[in-house]
């Protein structure tokens, strides 16, 4: 693992609502995530984990403070920059968010076609390979409605990773999986970090996989209360 910083968060504040109904979700969060590392964000519900994740992953506009993602400042970033950065990221959501009208293979293909469709046969081969890696070789033509919860989550993982993202953001990626499958996913993420320098930031409540993380950051009430960073 290098010492390069993939994500640099400084003085990050975030709130929801306005006026008297305004609720602050993050208070002066500071965080540096090293390239190739696997960082776990833990904490009770409502502690701001997912909010921090969505801000780092440019899914939400930064209101106050700085978030530098792969060398680009997200505070005040243009819509075009957000689109360009998102194409270098991988997202694994808690509710898989697969497209119900597309087969497993087509869903994974969407993770590649965002980069263009010039090499459609190559993309098809890559999508098939990723699904086989995750044990879904015989489920490629199934619609999500005909897959189990765990299978859907594995398709979502395949979709997030098939494009070789530089950073992966995962929100409870193992919640719908058994311990064996969950461990396989997280080990894959860790191996990607070691081999390709893929950085992973993961929100999780799953104690079974915490030991695999390089670093555990604990949030409570919008503040970092513990950080096992070396």
């Amino acid at each position: 693992m290098s010492n390069d910083v993939s994500i640099n968060v400084a003085g990050l504040n975030h709130w929801f609502g306005s006026g008297e109904a305004r609720i602050q979700a993050l208070y002066d969060v500071n965080l540096k995530v090293i390239r190739g590392s696997l960082t776990a964000l833990i904490g009770p519900s409502g502690s701001g984990k997912t909010t921090a994740l969505t801000l780092m992953g440019c899914l939400r506009d930064v209101q106050d403070g700085s978030v530098n993602l792969m060398g680009h400042e997200l505070n005040g970033a243009s819509a075009d920059l957000n689109v360009a950065l998102r194409r270098q990221l991988g997202f694994i959501f808690q509710a898989h968010n697969l497209h119900g009208s597309l087969t497993a293979l087509q869903n994974v293909l969407m993770g590649l076609q965002v980069h263009g469709t010039a090499d459609s046969s190559g993309q098809l081969a890559a999508a098939r390979h990723m699904l086989k890696l995750l044990g879904l070789g015989d489920r490629m033509d199934y619609l999500p409605g005909n897959l189990s919860g765990g299978q859907k989550q594995r398709v979502a993982v395949a979709r997030a990773l098939v494009g070789n993202p530089q950073v992966v953001f995962a929100d409870e990626p193992t919640a719908a999986l058994d311990s064996e499958s969950g461990r396989v996913i997280v080990e894959m993420l860790k191996r990607l970090g070691q081999v390709r320098g893929t950085t992973t930031v993961m929100v999780t409540h799953d104690n079974r996989i915490l030991e695999l993380a390089n670093r555990i950051v604990t949030l409570e009430d919008g503040r970092i209360v513990n950080d096992t960073a070396p």
Partner: peptide
């Protein structure tokens, strides 16, 4: 009906 899927595509970098 497909807002969640479209939002996911947006998160993936579709314009």
């Amino acid at each position: 009906d497909h807002l969640g899927e479209y939002a996911t595509f947006k998160a993936m970098g579709y314009s």
